[in-house]
């Protein structure tokens, strides 16, 4: 069941000004597995997620201590190419955020940013990316329609496809289903199962049943600490830390 560690986090602390949002986090993320991060609001799980592709850099006053090794390279080292890091470690957000462009342009936008101009290449990528999120058959005749005309679920799928087009290795998902109904949620979860063959997925979710259903590993965050991390089966049947037990049984939060 174990694969290689694609991300190794060592003694990571993150501060927003004088507030310490993450306290000495140590965690290994396995490749081609789904890792779920759970915990009450403000526990640091989203901060942790955003640290993994240095999205927190965009927040003023953020200070980071410790290491995040992605494929053995510390992402905080000064020679890190941020554009390249964010291509390899992409993010899907809570609310689908397609560009106000056509469906096709949404997919090819990132590729153009990364310097790809070949029309055939772009068309093939468009096909493959939409196919990977099971949107091709639905949308192949509407590729020039504005992406904002799609349903919420289609938009979220499109955002995932847009990410896959630039061939990431890790997909970070921040509450990707919170704006979707249960049927759309189930379909996105099915998609996650398919995607984990080729990608590593880390998902932040408030929905504990979702974490239990989709993930191989679960980490529980509380007040900036990683309280417990382990195989999802173990966390949901026999958590070791009483704080985890209280949270997943609904006694706390």
């Amino acid at each position: 069941m174990t694969t290689r560690n694609i991300i190794e986090v060592k003694n990571l602390s993150v501060f927003y000004g004088s507030f310490q949002a993450l306290k000495d986090i140590n965690i290994n993320i396995q490749a081609n597995r789904i890792t779920a991060l759970i915990g009450p609001s403000g526990c640091g799980k989203s901060t942790f997620l955003r640290t993994l592709n240095r999205m927190n850099d965009l927040i003023e006053g953020t200070r980071t201590v410790g290491q995040v090794l992605f494929d053995g390279q510390n992402i905080f080292s000064p020679d890190t190419d941020l554009l390249e890091l964010r291509r390899r470690v992409g993010m899907v957000f809570q609310r689908p955020n397609p560009f106000p462009l056509s469906i096709a342009e949404n997919i090819t936008y990132g590729l153009r940013v990364h310097g790809h101009k070949n029309k055939l290449f772009l068309e093939e990528k468009l096909y493959k990316s939409l196919q990977a999120v099971n949107l091709w058959d639905e949308l192949k005749d509407r590729l020039t329609d504005n992406a904002l005309s799609l349903t919420g679920e289609q938009q979220q799928r499109l955002c995932i496809a847009r990410l896959l087009a630039v061939e990431p290795e890790v997909v970070l998902m921040d509450e990707p289903c919170s704006a979707l109904d249960p049927v759309a949620t189930a379909r996105i979860e099915d998609l996650m199962y398919e995607l984990k063959k080729n990608y590593t997925i880390i998902i932040v979710t408030h929905n504990m049943q979702q974490a239990a259903r989709v993930s191989d590993f679960t980490g529980y965050f509380l007040l900036g600490e990683l309280v417990e991390f382990g195989e999802t089966n173990q966390i949901f049947t026999s958590p070791k830390d009483p704080r985890t037990e209280d949270y997943i049984t609904g006694r706390f939060g």
Binding site: M208, F236, T237, T244, I248, T249
Partner: peptide
């Protein structure tokens, strides 16, 4: 949908 000690 109980978990942990409740589920056990």
């Amino acid at each position: 949908q109980p978990a942990a000690a409740d589920l056990r």
